[in-house]
Simulated assay, not measured.
Amino acid sequence: MCRWLAYSGSPILLEELLYKPVHSLIDQSQHSRMGVETTNGDGFGVGWYGLDEAPSLPGTRRSDEPVLFRGVGPAWGDQNLRELARSTSSGLFLAHIRASTGTPVQQSNCHPFRHGRWLWVHNGAIRDFSVLKRDLVMAVDPELYPFMAGSTDSEVMFFLALTFGLHEDTIGAVERMAGFVEAVGRAHGVDEPLQMTVATTDGERLWGFRYSSIGQSRTLYVSTALSTLRQMYPDNPVFSELDDETRIVVSEPLGDLKGAWNPVPESSFGIVEAGDDTLGRFQPREP
């Protein structure tokens, strides 16, 4: 499958999560401990929101459209990614390392996928996608269809969610996408077709989803609240530099610090936003 991470909080250099942790995303591209595959070398990508002003100035806001950098080679060997990561900072970004489930290794198939302000990353698969693909793609809004550039199930899921109202009702749109995939699967005799952990963002809020038709979803973790981590580790300088709104959502933990990572429950969604975050039950429904 794949590995991904989503970060929201104080602006940091991308390398702080992509390269520096003991089990960073780049380390996971070769040594995944919880994925289906140990190696995730079929491309990579990072999408981030820049800042319209210097982060220290009042009134700073994230730029409207996120920036993408994607490559088809293994993330661990891409020097351009390393250079970019040590010189680019953001307060909201998604990163992904890919292990193909059958579709070609090409840039348009690398995550994150982008449409307008929205970014989307996915780990998992639609079972027998080649059988279901036509019916799924034909349900995409005709006005959105021209923006689909790749051939993956992940991108089709994103554009179905957009079709079902991602902008207005994010949770409901992803639930309708999942319900539709399962309904199409049943119509074609494909049992338990959907396996997914997903992160999506509009540049202001971050949503995470963990669900599978079989009820045994891929791993997903969220970082412990910074206020709690400061109490647990008062001498850790990293925690003192980040604000209380900082959260990280990951396919697997970036390190082994006790109490720093919490498993996201089966069949659930989470919202990371200013103020209190939200955790709720994910329930697919047919659109």
Results as ranks from 00 to 15, higher is better:
Met1Ile: 07
Cys2Ser: 13
Cys2Pro: 09
Tyr7Leu: 03
Leu14Ser: 06
Glu16Gln: 08
His23Ser: 13
Leu25Val: 00
Ser29Val: 13
Gly35Lys: 06
Thr39Trp: 09
Asp42His: 02
Tyr49Phe: 15
Gly50Asn: 13
Gly50Asp: 04
Asp52Ile: 12
Pro55His: 02
Leu57Val: 12
Gly59Leu: 07
Thr60Arg: 09
Arg62Gly: 05
Val67Arg: 05
Leu68Ala: 03
Val72Trp: 00
Gly73Pro: 00
Ala75Asp: 00
Asn80Pro: 02
Ser87Ala: 11
Ser87Asp: 06
Ser90Glu: 11
Leu92His: 03
Leu94Asp: 06
Ala95Gln: 08
Ile97Cys: 03
Ala99Thr: 15
Gly102Phe: 12
Gln106Ala: 13
Gln106Tyr: 03
Cys110Asn: 12
Arg114Val: 13
Gly116Arg: 07
Gly116Asp: 14
Arg117Ala: 08
Trp118Lys: 08
Val121Gly: 05
His122Trp: 02
Asn123Thr: 10
Asn123Trp: 04
Ser130Glu: 12
Lys133Asn: 08
Asp135Ile: 14
Asp135Gln: 15
Met138Pro: 01
Val140Lys: 03
Glu143Ser: 03
Tyr145Met: 11
Pro146Ser: 04
Phe147Arg: 07
Met148Ile: 15
Ala149Asn: 12
Ala149Leu: 15
Ser151Leu: 11
Ser154Tyr: 11
Val156Ser: 06
Met157Val: 14
Phe158Val: 04
Leu166Tyr: 03
His167Gln: 12
Asp169Ala: 05
Val174Lys: 02
Glu175Ile: 14
Glu182Gln: 10
Glu182Thr: 15
Glu182Gly: 01
Val184Gly: 03
Gly189Ser: 03
Val190Asn: 01
Val190Ser: 01
Met196Leu: 14
Met196Trp: 10
Thr201His: 10
Asp202Thr: 05
Leu206Thr: 12
Leu206Pro: 10
Arg210His: 01
Tyr211Asn: 05
Ser212His: 13
Ser213Phe: 01
Ser213His: 05
Ile214Gly: 09
Tyr221Gln: 10
Leu226Gln: 10
Thr228Pro: 00
Leu229Ala: 11
Arg230Ile: 00
Gln231Phe: 02
Tyr233Trp: 07
Tyr233Thr: 11
Pro234Thr: 12
Asp235Cys: 10
Phe239Tyr: 15
Glu241Asn: 04
Val249Phe: 02
Val250Cys: 00
Ser251Thr: 05
Gly255Met: 06
Asp256Gly: 08
Leu257Ser: 08
Leu257Gly: 10
Lys258Phe: 15
Gly259Ser: 06
Ala260Phe: 14
Asn262Lys: 12
Asn262Pro: 03
Val264Glu: 00
Val264His: 11
Glu266Cys: 11
Glu266His: 09
Ser267His: 14
Ser267Asp: 14
Ser268Val: 10
Phe269Ala: 02
Val272Ala: 09
Val272Met: 10
Gly275Phe: 14
Leu279Phe: 15
Gly280Ala: 04
Gln283Trp: 11
Gln283Asn: 13
Arg285Thr: 02
Arg285Glu: 08
